[in-house]
Amino acid sequence: MDNKKNSLTVKDCINIGVFAALYIVIFFVTSFIGYIPIMMAILGVACAVTCGIPLMLFFSKSHVFGMVSIMGAIMGIFMILMGRPWYCIFVALAAGVAADCVLKNGNYKSINKAVIASGVFSLWMMGMEVPLYFGARDTFIESIKEGYGEAYAEVIVKITPNWMFYATIVLTFVGGILGGLLGKAVLKKHFKKAGMA
């Protein structure tokens, strides 16, 4: 038990699993609005805001490098199981490691760093949006046309010009920070009192 502070334990693994489940449930409840074509572009933002709350609680539980990275990897694995393209997992892993670095910078204590980390972590959702832009765009639009019909594809094309990708990154990041602030408020209001965070 001596090195509890600087290495992963089973307890940490269980914490990751439990919070990943909570995160994914909230993510899916929010992402059902993504099926309306207009909403597809801002889907990341909405998800980032609502998911910030459990994420902040999770950050308050993490005390060692690796926990947030593993969380990111699990998000990636789950996305692949849902039939998303394979590079999702690398984007998610990268976002997790980056968020971990930010937290590490604050020594896993600073709540302001955690808010920023929440913004960084939310970027794992970008993996799902990559096929909409850049080189893969034409094939993706083509597959949408075949799969969802012309009308749907047209709306998608209309609302996603190429610059929208960068805008979505920024928006998701901002959404993550908003979610982080929301989570911070919830933590302060409910969990500090109960001594749980």
């Binding site: 269980i14 699993g17 439990v18 489940a21 909570l22 449930v25 699990i74 694995i77």
Partner: peptide, 18 residues
């Protein structure tokens, strides 16, 4: 590695609990 397996199995088991 078990650092991935344990969270995954906990996660799947936890959905109905939520």
């Amino acid at each position: 590695p078990s650092v991935i397996t344990i969270p995954l199995s906990v996660m799947f088991r936890f959905f109905p609990t939520i």
